[in-house]
Every structure is written in C-alpha cells, then in structure tokens.
Design a protein around this nucleic acid. Structure first.
Length: 353
DNA sequence: TATTCGTGGGT
DNA sequence: TACCCAAGAAT
C-alpha cells in the first residue's frame, strides 16, 4: 500500500535541490518575500514551451540584455525580435511574444495581470503558462500541468489511460495535490522533479521524495508510464531554395508570410515544399547553378530534402520576390535553422564569404 | 478532438 | 539510424 503524497515532502526536497536558473528566485529568497520579475517569468515560460532549459538559457539572457523590460520589448522592431528568436523554433511564439508585450504595455500600463483568467486572455499564454506566471510570479495557488506534471501524476496514481486522452484526469489529480502554501515553489518543484528524477526513461525512484506514495513504483511499472497514443509517420517533402547574390555582395532574401511554417522569419526564396519534387521556380532570371549536395531537415510533422541553387544577380535585375540585404546587415544567425543550413551548404560548396 | 508548428540532445 | 522528447498554444 502507498502513503498519500504530501506536498510538504516535495517542498522539502525542492528546498535542497532547486536548480538555479537565470529567471528563477531561490527558495530562500522567495521565503523572504522576494518574488521574481513577472516579465522574466513570462519570457522564460514562453521560451520554455516545448523547449529544453539548456536551449533557452542563452536566448533568455540575450533578450533580457536587449530588452530589460516589457515596455522595451513592446517598442522593439518585429524583425529584430524574430532575428533574435531564430534557431529556437516554434516561431509563432515570437510573433505572439510581441503582441503580448504590446498589449501589456499599451493596455495594462506595462504591468502583467496577476490572475489566471486575465493572463489567459493574452496572446501566446495558454492554460499552462497562465498558471505558471500566476503561481511563480504572484504566488497564486494555480496548478501547472506540463509534460513533467503529466508524467509525475500518471506514475504517482498509476493512470493507465494513454495521453492525450488522460490529460483531464491528470489535471484534476494535480489540482488536488496543489497546496495553498508556497504555490510558486511547489509548481517549480513538481516540474524539477519530473525533469531530474521522475524522468521519461530510467526514473531515479530510489531518491524520489514521493517514493512511498507512488503507485506505479509499488507496482513496478513507473518506467512504462505515461502511456501515449502512437504517432503518425512523417512524410518526406522536397523543395528548392535560391541563394542569389548581387554583384555588390547583397543577398536576396525574403521575409516569410506571418502565418504558417517559419512565419515571419527571414529566409531564402524558393519553391513550396511538397511530397512531389518541385519544378524550378527561381525568384528572378539568372544563371542559377546547382553546387551539389542537399539540406536534410526534420520538422515536427515532415522530413524535408532541400536542394539549393546559387547565382550572381545583375545589379539591375527586377526581382519578383524578396529584398536585398547588404553583407554588413546580414547575420546568418537571423535565419531559422533550415535556412541557415542552406547558407552553410552554399558557403562550403562555393567557398564564398 | 486533431493538426500544425522547430530544434537539438539523448538513447 | 530512427526514434523520443522538452516548463504548449492556436486553430
């Protein structure tokens, strides 16, 4: 038989094992009444959506350096924010980040709302992020349910229903465990537990503060939970991108439409990406050459094989698409990863700089 | 409810 | 290599 899990046992563990992060206030400081900056909590939580702490850290520090407050961010140029987000993925987050910053600056006097319901109205803030901000930044007793919490609850209560169907049940179980004391620390504690001990594979049950309360552990099935419904196979799509350079060195680039894949990001003009090989569709007439090689990249729901073409473009070429960017203004780091791969391939194949 | 939407690291 | 996965939201 198992004990009833106690939130206090987890908080005691967290007091000793909380991981330091740039956006986080240590448990001792929180107990002294020092809550973290809501702007930093919001920014970090949006960056952390479906993204690892290791990947986020550098981006977070850079954003804070460039835009120390939400009002600063609200005044930033779209292209600057999208460029700084490049490489982090899920670019709708960056578009909504700006919308949200401007809403907070213009409609909330630069102060984030403090309740779950008000936070939920803002762009890019869903149920998880609203709970995270309300609990972590404002110590409200809201329940965070992310992938970590789903895994911890499914094991603690041996929930056999596969995800995502089990989500409502797991949310209910998590809510009933959430304490009214130290809700901010508790939220971070459950997620830390899932990230460091109650891991997807090889959970470290021997050092878990809830070992005596865990039903899956007592049944020996912890590592097999949570169950998940099978995923669909990824199809492969094909496309061509065109890396054109004017005689004065300027690159022909385009800002992609603000909706859909890589929306709002800088990229090379090219064909659509489809399951059938694409016919040549250059952005302007030129002597396009194939330098050889291909870019392979995998998105969430398809594999992509991309061919590249390169050309020197005449100075007075009436291009149909895109805009020219001088080398002094071109930062490959502004490109989403698949576009940066194309640039790297062209650079190595042509040995051009 | 199901799909769309990135990327890099781990196994 | 080929998966799996990560502090989800929008549609």
């Amino acid at each position: 038989m198992c004990e009833t899990p106690k939130s206090g046992d987890l908080l005691d563990w967290y007091d000793q094992n909380a991981r330091a992060m740039p956006w986080r206030t240590a448990p001792a400081d929180r107990k002294a009444g020092h809550l973290p900056d809501p702007y930093r909590v919001w920014l970090s939580e949006v960056m952390l959506q479906q993204t690892t702490v290791a990947a986020v850290r550098g981006y977070f520090l850079r954003f804070i350096e460039l835009w120390p407050t939400v009002v600063d961010l609200a005044k930033a140029d779209d292209a600057a924010v999208m460029g700084e987000w490049a490489g982090l993925g899920y670019y709708a987050r960056a578009r909504n980040l700006l919308k949200c910053a401007r809403a907070v600056a213009n409609e909330h006097d630069g102060a984030f709302p403090t309740t779950h319901a008000e936070l939920l109205k803002l762009p890019g803030i869903g149920p998880y992020t609203a709970s995270a901000i309300a609990s972590i930044a404002f110590d409200r007793p809201e329940t965070v349910v992310d992938g970590n919490v789903e895994r911890v609850m499914s094991r603690l209560f041996a929930v056999q229903t596969p995800l995502p169907a089990a989500k409502p049940v797991l949310t209910d179980l998590a809510a009933k465990l959430t304490p009214s004391e130290r809700p901010g620390d508790y939220a971070q504690a459950v997620m830390d537990l899932g990230a460091t001990i109650c891991t997807p594979r090889n959970p470290a049950c021997g050092i878990c503060p809830w070992i005596n309360a865990c039903q899956a552990r007592s049944s020996g099935i912890a590592a097999s939970l949570p169950r998940k419904t099978p995923k669909k196979a990824k199809p492969t799509r094909f496309g061509i991108v065109y890396l054109g350079r004017r005689e004065d060195g300027a690159w022909l680039l385009e800002t992609r439409p603000s909706k859909g894949l890589l929306g709002g990001m800088l990229g090379w003009p090219g064909t659509e990406w489809t399951v059938e090989a694409q016919a040549e569709t250059p952005p302007c007439p030129a002597d396009w050459q194939d330098p050889g090689g291909e870019v392979r990249h995998t998105f969430t729901h398809f594999h992509l094989i991309l061919e590249i073409r390169v050309a020197v473009l005449p100075r007075e070429n009436p291009q149909d698409r895109g805009h020219f960017v001088m080398p002094s203004d071109f930062r490959p780091s502004d490109l989403p990863t698949v576009m940066r791969k194309a640039f790297d391939l062209a650079s190595s194949a042509m040995a051009m700089d």
